[in-house]
């Protein structure tokens, strides 16, 4: 998807020397992602799978012209890492880290808006363009190349649905995890805009869950501009009780806000087909072609 992934994407891995950073750098390199540098303060001069390591993002960017970064830094330091990357002119940021305090995420998002930076996550599996590029931790084998754009607030549920689509012969143009936290960067609305402009994407799957109102806003966006591409949605958490966090920090019904019913109703009235079961998604999608 050219609006997001350009040919000259040069990727930096922050936290590259940690267990997760190291492991997933290997997998991303194998998938064909152009990783040019890594950063871990105090580890300058080292190498991870042939990728040079630097102390600071500034240094890594100056020497390798990195323009995107994926962050595996532990939660207490993750916001700092994101701010450092943005100050060093990184324009696309994927934050894998889970459990970042909301106060920190709010600062990151505010700064990103001022600098025109695209942030994906935190608490996201990342982004994958089958079969050319992956900026994330998802198991690559469940994804197949195709024309369905997928955006999701949940990791494993994305794998479940992508596998389901691939089995039915419905490949994907791009799959994006938006993140399971209350405060995240890219929203369903942002992604719908990108999917609309992307010539390769012909139809869209939105995977939502309880909490917040991102799905309601997506519904509003779809109906207000007569969105030109077919959209199928799934919303997890119909059985969730009020006031309890369902695993994700962002998956909570507070008062009357964020219920699955509200999201499903909004999407249906916007003309979106909402699947009751994940296994219904391929059928609903095929119907729309």
């Amino acid at each position: 998807m050219e609006s997001f992934f350009s040919e000259d994407m040069r990727v930096l891995v922050q936290g590259i020397t940690g267990t997760q950073g190291r492991f997933h750098t290997r997998l991303m390199l194998d998938y064909g992602t152009n990783i040019v540098a890594g950063v871990t303060p105090g580890k300058r001069g080292g190498e991870v799978h042939g990728v040079p390591v630097y102390d600071t993002v500034e240094d890594a960017v100056r020497r390798n012209e990195a323009n995107a970064s994926i962050i595996f830094v532990p939660a207490p330091y993750a916001a700092e890492a994101a701010l450092e990357a943005m100050e060093a002119e990184i324009k696309t940021l994927v934050i894998i880290t889970e459990h970042i305090p909301i106060r920190d995420s709010i600062e990151v998002m505010s700064y990103a808006e001022k600098r025109g930076v695209i942030v994906i996550g935190p608490n996201t599996p990342g982004v994958i363009v089958p079969v050319s590029c992956k900026l994330g931790i998802m198991p690559a084998h469940v994804f197949k190349e195709g024309v369905v754009g997928v955006a999701s607030r949940s990791g494993t549920l994305t794998y479940e649905i992508a596998a389901e689509l691939s089995r039915s012969g419905l490949g994907q143009s791009i799959c994006l995890g938006l993140g399971g936290d209350p405060v995240v960067g890219l929203s369903f609305v942002d992604v719908l805009g990108m999917f609309e402009r992307d010539p390769k994407t012909e139809s869209i799957v939105l995977i939502g869950e309880i909490g917040g109102n991102a799905e309601e806003q997506a519904a509003e966006y779809i109906s207000s501009r007569r969105y030109p591409k077919p959209v199928v949605a799934f919303v997890a958490g119909r059985t969730a009780p009020r006031g309890k966090r369902m695993g994700h920090a962002g998956a909570i019904v507070m008062g009357e806000t964020g219920t699955a019913e509200s999201k499903i109703d909004a999407l249906k009235s916007a003309g979106v087909d909402v699947a009751e079961r994940t296994s219904d998604i391929p059928r609903l999608l095929s119907k729309s072609f």
């Binding site: 999701s152 607030r153 949940s154 990791g155 494993t156 549920l157 994305t158 479940e160 399971g180 995977i207 869950e209 309880i210 799934f234 997890a236 958490g237 119909r238 059985t239 969730a240 009780p241 309890k244 966090r245 369902m246 695993g247 994700h248 998956a251 009751e276 079961r277 994940t278």
Partner: peptide, 28 residues
């Protein structure tokens, strides 16, 4: 991550979204 509910089918899985979807499917 654990939340107690009212029923009789114990459910576990990996990933918040997947577990929520499992709960929903059981109820369905």
């Amino acid at each position: 991550a654990y939340v107690k509910l009212e029923g009789d089918i114990g459910i576990m899985g990996n990933g918040a979204g997947l577990v929520m979807a499992t709960l929903d499917t059981v109820q369905l």
